[in-house]
Write a protein that binds this DNA or RNA. Sequence first.
RNA 1: GCCGGGGUGGCGGAAUGGUAGACGCUACGGACUUAAAAUCCGUUGACCCUAAAGGUCGUGGGGGUUCGAGUCCCCUCCCCGGCACCA
Length: 904
Amino acid sequence: MVPTTDKYNPHELEPRWQKYWQEIGLLKATEGIAVGDAAVQAAHSAGADSPTLPRLEGQNGTKKAYILVMFPYPSGDLHMGHLKNYTMGDALARFRVQQGYSVLHPFGWDAFGLPAENAALKFGVSPAEWTFGNIAQSKESLGLMGIQYDWSREVMTAMPDYYRWNQWIFLKMYEKGLAYRKKSYVNWDPVEQSVLANEQVIDGRGWRSGALVEKRELEQWYLKITDYAERLLQDLDSLPRWPEKVKAMQRAWIGKSTGAEFDFAVKDSDKKIRVFSTRPDTIFGATFMVLAPEHPLVAELVTPAKKAEVEAYIAATRLKSEVDRQMEDREKTGIWTGAYAINPANHKEIPVWIADYVLYGYGTGAIMAVPGQDERDWEFAEKFGLEIVRTVQPPAEFSGKAYTEDGPAINSGFLNGLMMEEAKRKIIGWMEEKGIGEGKVNYRLRDWLISRQRYWGTPVPMIHCQNCGIVPVPYEQLPVELPTLRDVDDIRPKGKSPLAAHPEFFETTCPKCGGQARRDTDTLDTFMDSSWYYLRYADAHNQNLPFDPHKANFWMPVDQYIGGIEHAILHLLYSRFFTKFLSDLGMLEAQEPFEGLFTQGMVQGWTDVGEVEISGETIRFKTGERRSKLDLPETLTVSDARRSGAELRSAEDGSTHFWKAATMSKSLGNGVMVGPFVREQGADIARVTILFAAPPENEMIWTDEGVQGSWRFLNRVFRRVSEDRADLEKASGTLDAGALESANKALYAKLHATLEKVGSDIENLRFNTAVAALMEFLNTLYDYRKEHPVSPVYRTATRYYIQMLAPFAPHMAEELWHWFHSESVFQAQWPDVDKAALVADSFELVVQVSGKVRGKATVPADAGEDEIKRIARGIENVKVWLEGKQIVKEIYVPGKLLNIVVKG
RNA sequence: GCCGGGGUGGCGGAAUGGUAGACGCUACGGACUUAAAAUCCGUUGACCCUAAAGGUCGUGGGGGUUCGAGUCCCCUCCCCGGCACCA
């Protein structure tokens, strides 16, 4: 017998039930078999009191639910901000368990990466030790919150039995021609001392270090994600349960544009300049050309007279960082090469310029400039006095410069009079006929630069042999293990991989010729680790493959993925790419990894930004550290502060401090830490606070008042059940839903309405309204008990109530459930909604006169329209408003409302 | 500039075209207490008028569709997020 108590005491009951869930393996996932079925059946055959039949069709008929939260970088002690998405995932997973689904709710660690290296450098511990320490701490916090995972499937990317499959996948990609090496200008992060992929450079800065990236010409490994560009774009349309925002960002990143690629001959030369344009129809208006300064043709085209100037410009461009190039406020610069090209459409000679507004990395690195139809070209032409010819007729009222919309072609020879689309078709046909070009689709997406010059990652499984060139490590030799480096100086970034200083690692023999060879000393981008971890959960201990396709096919796709918006492109795009690749390999049926995606809002905490001085309307900060972290100016006005939601509070020493809600973070030190909070207040209180305070996609502010509210609510639940306990334990007849009267009938109806709402709200992750419905129904239970004894309906209501509470406050629900039942509340089937109960036998009729509410009456549900009208006209106030008026028409909405439209 | 999402009480926020403001927080009043806390009960969009009732206005602003609009359509302002010389 499980011990029970009669006073709500989270500290006592929470650890007890956490232990119990571990013992019964509540979230142990099993392919194709409903979790807990055996236990449920045993409980039932033992005659346990349960409102519904157990789910017996588990073996083959059970639906699966794969609930996944983005696995974290192991960062040690967790605060409430970390816990929000885990709490959401846990509530959803528990709900699916209650519904009898086969649930996979796993957890793991994105354990490779720079923070561990940085910590190693700072504290002199090995990255592995630091990581393991953090994992232990984080796990403890998760446990304290009662968040349950199938820990038997825990994944840790820094373990050889995980990253060997990174290497395996990399080799498969190499076999398929999707992993390749090339020399190119790459993004170099001077702080991380490593290269970065395009996606990892935000506004010209490293996504993690924030350092301005430099361009370096290096030979690196790439993954050919561009081969999948079209599918990555198209399949976004197959994801209705993704936020529009994320899909829009991915579409923009892929950046598909349709146009043509074609050649311009160079005057007095056999060279050709190839350009890409989305508006080939405007070719007659091409009055000059522009090449990117890096374009290789520049050196060949430049005339001797212009050589010095052009070279100076190229040199100046090279000195500018990406950010500089953008910060110049778009003032166009450029220089004429002295050369001319021939416009193939009208055979005019047009000058060839170079300018840094043309990017070498996109299209062909050269453009035909059509100032009449392109704002940038117009600006350039205006500045340098180049010819402007309109080739699309703007509407009469048009007063701008370049006209970029549709219209009939003019000054365009055989295209004249055609609208844009038609003109495009015709000119592309003409180009193809003449052999100077063809229709072309271009993508902004670049291949994924995957090698990194850092230690704490997966070694690239490649061998460089003087005789044979690049040779892949044979599959049977995997994993290529990362050597344990103990000396901090061995780890320190030096501009090339730390592994390059370790002959014991890189010295090897060539698998092909057996001669002396050298291992690749770079490591793989850690985003590779997270691109397929969700598949490893399906089969976490497979020694022969990354995962068994059968198991992956059972669980995939992930039904609900929950995580932060910061991965809208990075992780989510890479994962979609990997899923498609593995699917092409025949490893997986799913074309998309995540069927439902939810991006949760941040958790904010009230933060003391620092002491301020106030003179009149002006607030001046006396301290600066937190202020600058929050991007606040040194002085601001009182009204601006108020408008931003900030508060001025007096400190104990009499000074005034500036307080503001800010995202909880380690660096601000404003996080409500899980351990201390749960020990003082309780896990269920924290869970309810997180889930109720705001819609989950919004940011929420963690406040003491919110915590108070959760405490009050849970106490009221506990008190209600506890006060009725003795009566509820007594047998009190059976519930006959069809024979209920008045208050009992109303309670039953409200119960089922709540049941339906809570169920659909959880499915749609609207936890805040689900909790609100539970609060509302609790008020109903209190109201009922003021006037009525514990009855069969009330017993059922209480029982369902505990079940409905369970996803949110699982510890309390389990406690209360065990007062009356011997199995877990999560093993009792979620009740079915009695649809008949939702049909009331009377309703409150709203009577409007000309659209304004003038009266209400309770009427029988089966009242006919004529009777409704009669009742409505009998209402005193309605009579007053109808007095002396002529009824024009009456609109009756059955079960709801009657609108009497009058005139006069 | 372009794209995506928003604008509802003092606050967080509810509302399949059908009673706007559910639920909670705050505040105020009351009960309990020697007192405080906790708890419980009540009030809490603005305004008018009440003995009871009732009425007017109200979802950023302006127009429209409709018997009826927070919700649909057009215009406009503002806020948040993303992208931004991508030819």
